[in-house]
Design a protein around this nucleic acid. Sequence first.
RNA 1: GCGUGGGUGGCGGAAUUGGUAGACGCACUAGCUUGAGGUGCUAGCGCUCGCAAGGGCGUGCUGGUUCGAGUCCAGUCUCGCGCACCA
Length: 831
Amino acid sequence: MNEDRPGTYDYRGIEAKWQAAWQEADLYRARDDDPRPKYYVLEMLPYPSGDLHVGHAKNYTLGDSVARMMRMQGHNVIHPMGWDAFGLPAENAAMQRNIDPRAWTESNIANMRRQIRLMGTGYDWNREFATCDPAYYRWNQWIFLRLYERGLAYKREAPVNWCPFDQTVLANEQAEGGVCWRCGNAVERRNLSQWFFKITDYAERLLAGLDTLTGWPEQTRAMQRNWIGRSEGTTFAFAVDGHADASVGVFTTRVDTVFGVSYVVLAAEHPLVQTITTPEHREAVTAFTASLSSKSDLERTSLMEKAGVPTGAFALHPLTGARIPIWIANYVLAEYGTGAVMGVPGHDERDFVFAKQYGLPIVRVVVPTDSDLAPDAPLDEALTGDGTLVNSGAFDGMSSADARRAITDALHARGIGEGVVNFRLRDWLLSRQRYWGTPIPIVYCPTDGEVMVPDAQLPVILPPNLPITGQGSPLARDAAFYETTCPKCGGPARRETDTMDTFVDSSWYFIRYLDARNETLPFDGARVSPMMPVDQYIGGSEHAVLHLLYARFFTMVLADAGMLDLPGGEPFERLFHQGMVWRNGEKMSKSRGNVVGIDETVETYGIDAMRLFLLKLAPPEDSAEWTDEGIVGRVRFVNRVWRISEPYFPIAKIIALDTLPPCTTDAERDLVRAVHLALASGAEETATRRFHYNTTTARLDELVNALSKATAEPGEPSAALLYAVHALPVLLAPFAPHLADELWSRLGYTESVHLGRWIPADPAALAVAQITVVVQINGKVRGRVTTQPGTPQAEILALALADPNVTNHIGEKPIRKEIYIADKLLNLVVA
RNA sequence: GCGUGGGUGGCGGAAUUGGUAGACGCACUAGCUUGAGGUGCUAGCGCUCGCAAGGGCGUGCUGGUUCGAGUCCAGUCUCGCGCACCA
């Protein structure tokens, strides 16, 4: 019904037509031999969860606008898309619907691919892959083996969430509240032998690299610094009284307070707890430990009350020889530092609270320099600042900083301590006792032990159609999978049945895109190196730490292994976090029932209107509130553009847009100026990498308003008007790609506007004939003077004084001072 | 607590180096237009006093610097995000 009414844009037919044409022409294919400078723009690999909503569209269409803009500005744009296809939801779906995870995943991919294409995005689909494809995950296995060879993959015992009823390991989100999400039974912590990547070997480099990532948001860099958590301090050992072979190692950043130690605390899981606890305390210690072990990680760390019990054992202070009690407490973490701390109640808030609660002595050894508190006054709270040492033997009178060095040296001289750098960062636990992931390519042989699967035997194929019950690991029950022979001795052996964390998949996929069909290597370094790094990475800030840290780690390792030539080893030059789309004051999500789907939106309003609205709504990094009323404005805009352009289709002819048209009137000059203001805005937002195209859409509105007026004038169209009409599709191309190509072809151009050139903004076109100078009296606006640019100050003053409102405000008072900002403002200061 | 980013009309937001606060859009109001009202056109639209000209106030709050502050400085309130018994 739309297509017969003039003045109405048939978005359905036209948008579908152009998408088919682009696909037919393979318009967005990037080639290695393209002589133009490369620009690699990438949105984070999506998980194929099912349906997309307009929040996803905001992300993908932003990347698409950036890609189109850069392509029109002369770059060889690489803009790929693929699927993060392994992971838990597929197994859950398999259980709930009795469907194979692969079938579920593949149908989701098909739907999401359709929807992403439906947005009019220009991806190079020749590079597409899904991480669950053996052609991809075999290289996960290959890379794992290279890390193993370099000593960066290893196995050790580590605690997991374990459901004793389902006999399975649970992810943290499946064990919330300490109960199993499926059966409701209490979750236990259990030690299991697990695979780790030694990311801690790269802690210093990952930290130092952050300083070079000036194209990243500061908050993200701060979060990574925080996560890596580097701290400088001292480790030293307390001897245990009566246990000649035992000592308690502690780490502290405040060794200057060591003379204030009145007790020592171990984590409940500390290995010494079993050996040193005295018989009369054993029962209490065991009970306390048990009460903690039945708690989930979440509960343990959110416990508000500090609690602990004495072990009955005593440590000997290394500098004073004092006998001090050894406790265990819930506030000491086995996984951080040495799993034990020295208790200094006078100078640590936690220790202060703990000491008060259990009546342990509180001693002051550091006097803060900026306090008027008497040196021996009783404390209301711990003094945590630096100061001057007292009650510290030979170290009295030293500043905290000096004392830290001197005491560390003293401990070192006795062979019981040293200065160390400690990190909060832990090794990356990649083992998952699950089915839907990359099998870890290791075989266990009774004679040869842990053996790598040879490269020639990769991939270790994930067997299809295993029953998924939620109880235990399907692979561990499949004898056909785990029964194998040892690659070394040929004897019977057992395969590793753990699969890899899906973060492995997303830690190098951006390199694979550059050589996506390579069948002999994960990628060819000579081929991919010139295309790295990713110039612009776009994705949510929820990945600020894990994914973005793991990907940096992998890229550094691959570069170190000589597989990739990338100075600095940083994969992402610039990073942009897009904001989420909200509706009714809440984040858009299926569970809240406030999603606005892609299919319905495109059907009702059209793709280009949706894209323009998502751009206009807010700066892309901000979260934005979706409204159904708001998008109507963009539908109006699209239709106005169409109505304005339509009369010029019959008189189509090619215009050279990089030359300014001759203008005879101010109105014509203003129209051309509006074109170039919009061009300047688009180029500026792209060049600065701010991507605030919401302001560019405002310039486009102004241009269309001006065009609307100009086309209403009777008579032959001026050169300026024709120029503006022809420039409009170029301006729209990055944002409303279908409308742009339709206008462009109707106006007589044969090649797609997306292969054409952006028009550089011309300063001559931006110049103005008339300026308005604001006249202020004592900083308040009292008048305006309209004149030519470059008018001398004296003349401006004369014009200003001709304004009665200006003279009224001056009155009889003399002008004490004149401030003149050329062509902008004249401020007269009167007494 | 530590880190980090914000607070501007009824709403989303705009505003180079300090220099006309509120661009552009939504909503709203009035009018015009059409064969019937959803997607056309024109005008108005921060609050307030005023018939008007014009005035006063106004960017979370309190001070400060300046001829001039949304923008800079100090303090403070508040919201979002991240991490958190990190030794």
